[in-house]
Amino acid sequence: MGAVHLKVSDLERSTSYYTEVLGLSVLNRYAGLVRLTADGVHPLILLEQIPGALALPPGRHSGLYHFALLVPSRRDLGNALRHLIGRQVRLGSSDHGVSEALYLSDPDGIGIEIYRDRDRSEWTYLPGGQVFMRTDPLDAAGLLREAEVREWEGLPVGTRIGHVHLHVGDLNRAEAFYSRLLGFRIMLRYGPSALFAGAGGYHHHLGLNVWAGEGAPATPDRATGLKYFTIVNPDPDHIEWLLEEFAARSIPVDARGDGWYFKDPFGIGIRLTTCGIL
Score class of each variant (00 low, 15 high):
residue 83 H to Y: 06
residue 266 F to S: 07
residue 46 L to A: 10
residue 204 H to Y: 03
residue 47 L to P: 09
residue 124 T to D: 10
residue 144 L to S: 03
residue 216 A to F: 12
residue 50 I to C: 06
residue 258 D to G: 03
residue 157 V to S: 14
residue 230 T to H: 06
residue 181 L to G: 01
residue 179 S to V: 04
residue 163 H to I: 04
residue 109 G to C: 09
residue 145 R to H: 12
residue 79 N to D: 15
residue 150 R to Q: 08
residue 95 D to A: 11
residue 218 A to I: 08
residue 277 I to W: 12
residue 25 S to I: 12
residue 234 P to H: 05
residue 251 I to V: 15
residue 228 Y to P: 10
residue 96 H to D: 02
residue 52 G to S: 03
residue 81 L to E: 01
residue 125 Y to I: 07
residue 83 H to P: 05
residue 85 I to P: 01
residue 248 A to N: 14
residue 159 T to W: 02
residue 271 R to G: 10
residue 193 S to A: 14
residue 245 E to D: 09
residue 96 H to L: 04
residue 250 S to F: 15
residue 9 S to L: 07
residue 162 G to W: 02
residue 129 G to D: 05
residue 78 G to V: 07
residue 250 S to M: 15
residue 36 L to D: 09
residue 275 C to W: 13
residue 123 W to D: 02
residue 119 D to L: 11
residue 224 T to G: 04
residue 13 R to Y: 05
residue 199 A to H: 11
residue 113 E to C: 08
residue 252 P to L: 06
residue 156 P to G: 04
residue 149 V to Y: 06
residue 176 A to T: 14
residue 240 E to H: 12
residue 46 L to W: 12
residue 108 D to E: 07
residue 147 A to Y: 08
residue 265 P to N: 08
residue 64 L to S: 06
residue 47 L to A: 08
residue 169 G to E: 05
residue 271 R to A: 09
residue 94 S to M: 12
residue 23 G to Q: 00
residue 99 S to Y: 03
residue 262 F to G: 03
residue 26 V to R: 05
residue 31 A to T: 10
residue 88 Q to M: 13
residue 84 L to P: 00
residue 69 L to N: 04
residue 25 S to Q: 14
residue 67 F to I: 11
residue 42 H to A: 12
residue 227 K to V: 13
residue 45 I to R: 03
residue 136 D to H: 11
residue 210 V to G: 08
residue 185 R to Q: 15
residue 84 L to Q: 03
residue 99 S to Q: 07
residue 115 Y to L: 04
residue 63 G to H: 10
residue 199 A to V: 09
residue 96 H to A: 04
residue 113 E to L: 09
residue 260 W to D: 02
residue 240 E to P: 02
residue 141 A to V: 11
residue 163 H to R: 01
residue 182 L to W: 04
residue 67 F to S: 11
residue 251 I to R: 08
residue 251 I to H: 07
residue 117 D to R: 00
residue 183 G to C: 04
residue 187 M to T: 13
residue 49 Q to T: 11
residue 239 I to V: 13
residue 75 R to D: 00
residue 30 Y to W: 13
residue 90 R to P: 04
residue 147 A to S: 14
residue 177 F to G: 09
residue 179 S to F: 01
residue 77 L to G: 02
residue 73 S to F: 01
residue 219 T to M: 15
residue 236 P to C: 10
residue 198 G to E: 01
residue 178 Y to A: 00
residue 262 F to W: 04
residue 272 L to K: 06
residue 175 E to F: 10
residue 9 S to F: 04
residue 109 G to H: 06
residue 174 A to F: 12
residue 163 H to P: 05
residue 210 V to T: 15
